[in-house]
Amino acid sequence: MHLIPCPYCGERPQDEFHYRGDATVTRPAPDAGEQAFYDYVYTRANPRGWHDEWWHHYAGCRQWLKVRRNTLTHAVAASVGPADALPEATP
């Protein structure tokens, strides 16, 4: 059982969550051009290691969370509410 710490509910099983994608992408400026928007929508890195991700705690507090997860080990270093920032770096 993979446990994900929710900043509101505490540690919860992964099946209470939906993975909602990369939390590092930011919307380009309206005039940034077609390629920038193509990358924003479709182009994703596939990191081996720490990755900041959106997880939706759909069966708990219904909040969208930012979770820093290690894609290699599934370790979770931090999780915060949708409007909060994850810590700068994870060793």
């Binding site: 069966a59 708990g60 507090c61 219904r62």
Partner: peptide, 8 residues
């Protein structure tokens, strides 16, 4: 007693 949780 008094604890609550939204869960499956």
């Amino acid at each position: 007693a008094g604890d609550s949780a939204a869960t499956l």
